[in-house]
Design a protein around this nucleic acid. Structure first.
Lengths: 356, 356
DNA sequence: CGAAATGAGTAAATCGATTTATCGTGCTTG
DNA sequence: CAAGCACGATAAATCGATTTACTCATTTCG
């Protein structure tokens, strides 16, 4: 086999030292840019490095160092556009600082979240970017506090007593959605969400409610929250819409506080044969690529993934490098993309004519 | 600060040894399950471990070991459902074997792909699961060969002279799509794809063509391939459809060989005001959650993510543990979900009536 | 001129484990 | 009774770097 040979041990710093005729310490100095090395020796070392194809072993290097150049990232899932892009951004930023990002998914389980974190602690990561399953008061954040780990919380958090937090300003975005809907004449609106995230959900609800009622004090706002997963939500929503049909009253618009809720709402519309936006309007929190190519194109709140990632990493590195001061809670503004899925309320023929 | 104290050094194996009144070697033995340890001492060690909250440092542990318990995974992106789920599955499987998965995204760049791989080589990972940007002949696979790394190639590959490969049987799936379309009477079909992946694209094209022509020898199959990115494809497609309208002939169905192509096709339909499936049918390779909740629901080929991940990991661990033998090329069967986006050809009123 | 400072380099300790070689015991066994 | 052999345990080497402490020349300067 041609590469049986290539498989053999990689050159170590000692191999380089030997070939260059200097000590390992000198090689280390040359490679880390210390200046007290004779020109001649530096050249010999560099030649040897080149010739042997030597590269520092990051594990061995980190062993001796005080702080390992590894950053952990924990997200509920990889496959959503939001978290996928988030991890990608975090990855780049970590690399730019000479760190390696080790990403793991908690799969929406708080137990797993803590397990992963414990493992990252074992790895003695320099810091962690945690997007908690639930919120900042979960077990993982508790573990980080108890163990004096360095970290930043993102996404489903508002603020924390110990860690910096960075998240989308979903309250403001929700208020904007409310204004758009109320402004178009909607007076009966359904909000769907996940109860788990407590504080953030409350912020979104409050933001929406305040803005809607300010514009239309007579508006009716229903809320359907599911505790944990998607399927319960589907059932809840089915019940809710069933009740509506019985009573002959139906919301004219739906605002979903999370991506999967938007999908569930759409599929319920479809099940009942409701046309969007003719029969009912829809806005979702969280944008996705497909939303602009389907019929109708779905209106959505776009989260500033890039900015969240950047500020999270900036805050994290500041702490890693010893930055002091009280934890900061950062909110990044969202963008609302109004698309075809929002129209005037059903039955409001005048408005529809005026628009068409 | 309450946790300033917690922040201090974690206990090492020596701390445990001291507290248990034995040597570090004994502690190591107890923890790795070696039996030649007195009951009494084992108990003392376990007590000390418990009391100190000791956990093995995986870095230090891997240093001394012959093989580091780290598996690298390289995918083009995290945010697609396919690769997102893939990484999640690989993560679980690696953990089940006591390994840590370090995932990285090549962002569809072959240069970056090789860089990441070099970094993983520096980490001396036990093995790599690589989903190449292009195909099995890219620079990353070359690097792995040249350096005698252990690895498995997945997804955009057919077979390789050195590495085991696992991918979806997209040729068979394409043939099935062809039969469905031709069977419904479509005689002018457009295939859109990315030229980059050469061999796999060819396999899909051939699979489709053979099956379509077997059923309908008079069928016309057009192909639009873009070289690299999505935007060029959009332009190509726009030109193609423009030409169609001029000549007054238009394909009655589109089969997209990759997810983003499906999105682009949809958005082109939308731009031209073509209704799907009334004006034109659509099937996409690669399924996504949204496809079943939109109007129309989009027909798609579902890739067996789980099976691919499982076989890839099985093959990888077999090689890591010294398994010999020629590389195996595995193809996993796909499932085709026919949905509303496929109907009879436009203009074929009879068929449409018969169906509705 | 002798003391102090600087420059260039190295041996050895260290990080936190695993593994090898070695060392006493106590028990068989010829 | 001496040699042989398990059995349990440990000291020390090792993995591949970084860093500390120290040596030996050479300069610089009072």
């Amino acid at each position: 086999m041609a590469h049986r040979q290539a498989q053999q041990r990689r050159p170590s710093i000692h191999d380089v030292a030997e070939r260059a005729g200097v000590s390992a310490a000198t090689v280390s100095k040359v490679l880390s840019g210390v200046v007290t090395v004779k020109q001649e020796n530096a050249r010999r070392v560099l030649d040897a490095v080149e010739h042997l194809g030597y590269r520092v072993d990051p594990l061995a290097s980190d062993m001796r160092r005080a702080r390992r150049r590894i950053i952990g990232a924990i997200v509920p899932e990889f496959e959503s556009e939001f978290f996928g892009q988030m991890v990608t951004r975090l990855e780049s930023l970590a690399e730019e600082h000479g760190y390696t990002l080790v990403a793991a998914s908690s799969r929406e389980s708080e137990a797993r979240e803590k397990e992963i974190l414990a493992r990252m602690h074992d790895w003695r990561v320099a810091g962690v970017v945690l997007a908690p399953v639930r919120n900042e008061h979960g077990p993982a954040a508790g573990f980080m506090k108890a163990n004096g780990m360095t970290g930043v919380l993102i996404d489903r958090v508002l603020s924390d007593a110990v860690f910096d937090t960075v998240s989308a300003d979903s309250a403001a975005a929700s208020a904007q959605v409310a204004r758009e809907l109320a402004g178009r004449g909607h007076r009966h609106i359904l909000i769907v969400g996940l109860g788990e995230q407590a504080a953030t959900v409350r912020a979104r609800l409050d933001g929406f409610r305040a803005a809607a009622l300010a514009l239309a004090p007579d508006a009716r706002i229903d809320v359907v929250l599911a505790e944990s997963d998607v399927e319960p939500l589907r059932a809840r929503l089915r019940d809710y819409f069933g009740g509506c049909e019985e009573k002959g009253e139906r919301p004219t618009a739906v605002y979903s506080l999370f991506l999967r809720g938007t999908l569930v709402a759409l599929s319920e519309f479809r099940r009942r044969g409701w046309r969007c936006p003719d029969d009912i309007s829809l806005v979702g929190f969280d944008d996705a690529e497909w939303m602009q190519v389907t019929w109708p194109a779905i209106a959505a709140v776009v989260q500033p993934v890039g900015r969240i990632a950047e500020h999270a990493m900036a805050a994290l590195f500041a702490r890693i490098e010893g930055g002091e001061g009280p934890p900061a809670a950062r909110l990044e503004p969202c963008r609302l993309l109004m698309r075809d899925s929002v129209g005037p309320p059903a039955g409001n023929a005048a408005a529809r004519e005026g628009r068409g």
